[in-house]
Design a protein around this nucleic acid. Structure first.
Length: 446
RNA sequence: GGGCCGUUAGCUCAGCUGGUAGAGCAGGGGACUCUUAAUCCCAAGGUCGCAGGUUCGAUCCCUGCACGGCCCA
């Protein structure tokens, strides 16, 4: 049996429901067309109640099979209906159906509409079922979409231009991470999936675009956890003629605005705690934070001893910088529940950041945290090509093409990264990053 | 990579320190003109993740594997 190829002139269920709300019981209102999925059916003989769901909401349908020439509708069918807004004797806003068209037939039984789909593996592998029967899932992914839209509005309104830079890169950089490697047959060359956008975006600053941003999928061939996925989404922006203090101000404002636009409130609940994005956030220096934990020292051996005393396994840490990073992530980060900026990092951890005037070995860099997670990283960009080349050399790396770009002169610039997935976790109150990524990476079956 | 836990009907879950499995919802048939997790009646639905082992006998005990979850690295 052929079904219609289109169903024109439908309205959103939420709008029609709102109209029906205003009616007196058993009164009827205007004629409307609605379409969606049948998620409930209550047969009363000559009268049948259906629940119709679309993206905007749910409404009850009142159908009389005798007047419709039968009602061959199963749970899960996609239908289009026409009828009048009404309210039942019991006061339920409804649509009295005068015409019903089957638009798509369900061929398998719908999962339990009361319990939803609970099994984590099913929810991730068959996200369509999760979205279909779990209203919260639908809602949370719409929050994520609204979040990204709000970020674009915010930056567009401030003169940033959205750009696209390569995902396939001959040389990866901009972060310390293991890349995915692929191969171009035509070029007969290995290419890397980007781990960050940074070095390309800064080339655009050299090129005079002044304020750029990219919302990108980045890829890191590393561990998977509640806050890590191999494929994740990051915002990076670069603003010429600004420094990291300007970036602090801007990210505070951005998070306040977009949180409000995506959720209706600048405060969210995550892991049982309210997190409030209203400025001003707490700010403390990284060194101060480590001192407060009693583990700040420039000496690697002392630092290692301090961490081991706190029963932190430092076996995998080779350098002082790695030990500092370990101390930060284990002792400090979990305590940063309210939005907090940690600023002024040792240069050893920050090869792309600009040195702070008058402070030995410190760069103008900050990371910001909320809910016990790092949300992002920012700094005044190092724009001296010779110093950049020397920093690369210290790491045992090089990127002559990038250094050459800097040698044409990059204005003083502030750059910032923001983890969209983690922010989405905070805004939706989800405990795991898999719950805010539509199709998270899982081990293949078979 | 390591430790612990899980995997039973399409979905959500029971299953007694071993005797070849049950319920609700969905799906099928029927009753009902105000239900909303509708209700009621009938019938049906299973490679108990996979492969071995122990045993007269394994969903249950043991081993390995697969996938997932939590924690650790």
């Amino acid at each position: 049996m052929s079904t219609p190829h289109r169903f024109p002139d439908r309205e959103e269920i939420a709008a029609v429901r709102a109209e029906a709300e205003t009616l007196e019981p058993q009164a009827t209102g205007a004629e409307h067309a609605l379409a969606g999925r049948v998620m409930g059916r209550r047969d009363m003989g000559k009268l049948v109640f259906l629940d119709l769901v679309d993206r905007s909401g749910k409404i009850q349908l009142l159908a009389q099979p005798d007047e419709l020439g039968g009602l061959d509708v199963d749970l899960g069918d996609v239908v289009g209906v026409r009828g009048q807004a009404t309210k039942t004797k019991r006061g339920e806003p409804s649509l009295a159906v005068s015409e019903l068209q089957l638009l798509a037939k369900i061929k398998r039984p719908l999962p339990d509409t009361y319990h939803g789909v609970v099994d984590a593996e099913t929810r991730y592998r068959k996200r369509y079922l999760d979205l279909l029967v779990n209203e919260e899932t639908r809602r949370d992914f719409l929050v994520r979409s609204e979040l990204v839209a709000a970020i674009r509005r915010f930056l567009d309104a401030r003169g940033f231009v959205e750009v696209e830079t390569p995902i396939l890169q001959p040389r990866y950089g901009g972060a310390l991470a293991e890349p995915f490697v692929t191969h171009s047959n035509e070029l007969d060359a290995d290419l890397y999936l980007r781990i960050a956008d940074e070095l390309y975006l800064k080339r655009l600053i050299v090129g005079g675009l002044e304020r750029v941003y990219e919302i990108s999928k980045d890829f890191r061939n590393e561990s998977i956890s509640y806050k890590h996925q191999p494929e994740f989404t990051m915002l990076e922006w670069y603003e010429a003629y600004a420094d990291y203090e300007d970036a602090m101000t801007l990210i505070e404002e951005l998070l306040r605005v977009v949180t409000k636009e995506a959720t209706g409130s600048a405060a969210v609940t995550f892991r049982g705690q309210e997190i409030d994005f209203e400025p001003a956030w707490k700010r403390m220096s990284l060194i101060g934070a480590l001192e407060a934990e009693g583990v700040w020292t420039r000496d690697a051996n002392d630092l290692r001893k301090g961490l081991q005393e706190r029963e932190i396994d430092t076996g995998a840490d080779e350098t002082w910088a790695q030990l500092v990073d370990h101390a930060l992530s284990h002792l400090v980060e979990p305590k940063l529940i309210q939005p907090t900026i940690l600023f002024d990092y040792p240069v050893e951890l920050s090869p792309l950041a600009r040195l702070k005037e008058g402070e030995e070995g410190i760069v103008e860099r900050f990371e910001y945290f909320a809910g016990g997670m790092e949300l992002g990283n920012a700094y005044s960009e190092l724009n001296d090509p010779d110093e950049q080349a020397a920093r690369f050399a210290e790491m045992g790396a090089e990127d002559p093409d990038y250094v050459e770009a800097l040698s044409y002169g990059m204005p003083p610039t502030a750059g910032l990264g923001l983890g969209i997935d983690r922010l989405s976790m905070l805004l939706t109150g989800r405990d795991t990053i898999r719950d805010v990524i539509l199709f998270p990476t899982l081990r293949p079956t078979e």
